[in-house]
């Protein structure tokens, strides 16, 4: 296999890497960049634990080749907080106890963040649909939905 030189823009930082073409974005994030916040769940795109944002769109990093996302802006859970200040979605997940085991949380939070950036005042059904591709085996989803509704309020307040 010919190795491919790539530049990945992760959380605003450029990384120059040489990767085999069969390496997924998930593997590069965890193994090469040691960003362990992105999880591998099912590995076949069904669970959403590995969700990252590419140009602020949630995608499955387990089904994305690292070589395919050269030059695109990638956001992982590590890129949401500003210093010690959590992102409003993260704050809301903590406040509303929307995290139990935490395995789905990175994917849930990133999916919710991208959704709330587009939708300022979401209805309950819209929230449910937005996270319908992310599986949580602990919470029963209710607290996650509450947290996203809370985050929406925080974010509209913040933007004025």
């Amino acid at each position: 296999m010919t190795l491919i030189p790539i530049t990945l823009l992760v959380n605003g930082e450029p990384y120059n890497l040489t990767v085999p073409p069969n390496k997924t974005l998930l593997e590069v994030l965890r193994e090469d960049l040691e960003l362990m916040g992105t999880r591998e769940g099912c590995g076949v795109g069904a669970c959403g634990a590995c969700t990252v944002l590419i140009d602020n769109v949630p995608v499955r990093s387990c089904l994305t080749l690292a070589a395919d996302v050269q030059g695109l802006s990638i956001t992982t859970i590590e890129g949401l907080a500003e210093g010690q200040k959590l992102h409003p979605v993260q704050e809301a997940f903590v406040e509303r106890h929307a995290i139990q085991c935490g395995y789905c949380s990175s994917g849930m939070i990133l999916t919710a963040k991208a959704f709330l950036d587009k939708k300022k005042r979401p209805k309950k059904d819209e929230i449910k649909k937005a996270i319908s591709g992310n599986i949580c085996r602990c919470t029963g989803y209710t607290k996650i939905e509450d947290a996203i509704a809370t985050a929406a309020k925080k974010m509209t307040k913040k933007s004025g």
Binding site: G45, G48, T51, V57, P58, V59, R60, L63, T64, T111, K129, A130, S132, G133, N134
Partner: peptide
């Protein structure tokens, strides 16, 4: 599927 998979 679901929205994130529709994105891909």
């Amino acid at each position: 599927a679901a929205p994130p998979l529709q994105n891909m």
